[in-house]
Write a protein that binds this DNA or RNA. Sequence first.
DNA 1: TCAATCAGGACCCGAATGGTACCATTTGGC
DNA 2: GCCAAATGGTACCATTCGGGTCCTGATTGA
Lengths: 154, 154
Amino acid sequence: MLRIAKLTDYATVVLATLAERPGAHASATELATLARLEPTTVSKVLKTLAQAGLVESRRGAAGGYRLGRAPEAISVADVIVAMEGPIGLTECQLHVGLCHHEGHCGIRGNWQKIGVAIETALQSVSLADLVPGRRRPTAIPSVTLPAEVPGAER
Amino acid sequence: MLRIAKLTDYATVVLATLAERPGAHASATELATLARLEPTTVSKVLKTLAQAGLVESRRGAAGGYRLGRAPEAISVADVIVAMEGPIGLTECQLHVGLCHHEGHCGIRGNWQKIGVAIETALQSVSLADLVPGRRRPTAIPSVTLPAEVPGAER
DNA sequence: TCAATCAGGACCCGAATGGTACCATTTGGC
DNA sequence: GCCAAATGGTACCATTCGGGTCCTGATTGA
């Protein structure tokens, strides 16, 4: 487990397809053909991505979608956040007050730090890194877990 | 999103509770009281953890559970794997052949590397680090994404 | 022998997910 | 001016999954 949703996976594929044809607008059906996905599903994904600003849409005839930013400026974390909302391993990481164990749960702060570390890792990988053969980075910046993970703030 | 299941969260709390009383066996109901969780839920969690070897069980009167290994030897990744199965962000990361896009999907290998990076990060945090006030590590080992993330193996 | 405790299912309910369909709106071209 | 193409938005449904509860059997110590 610890999966991302299928739609999020599709989103990365669609975005990668878009990254291979920069500038021009591509329709949802066209992208679906290229990515070999269901047109309706691709359309749904693109709508969500457009709301997040990751793709720009143009309506009407000869409309379609194109990347909202350069592939290097779109991280995997951006895609996940756009499709699934804020990244947080636990519920209490996002919404304070919902969990009635907050008062005595000593490991809450640690989960938050772990989540931050994962989010940082996902932010360090850009869409350009995912597109096959487009860019070939020599190395990915190293990711460090935030120091002192112990039960600090309680 | 990108959440862990609630039961996994409970598992860390229960394990942390167990870590605070090393050696002695504690019953499921006793642990539930300490962790302020439902006894039946705690029992369910403990059964799963016992199957994975993270806790040792003793049946009968005066039975109960205790940690199977030292808290330092139990990582957050171990807990997640025990409760939810292998860590994998995407379906194709775990089961080859299920996805009919494998042949032409260029970003599959990259997702795998991202998953490995996250798993490594989770493995670097032990149960001892989660228990409040028990150990206070000066720093957590840095985690580096595996080099060359480009669409290599295709 | 009995009570306490774990082991292992079976079961149910609610929520989330994936997928589809429908209609309104916008745009460009004939 | 009209029509086709395309997105925007919403609603809907089937399925799966997670969380929680309950029951019965096996084991152990007093």
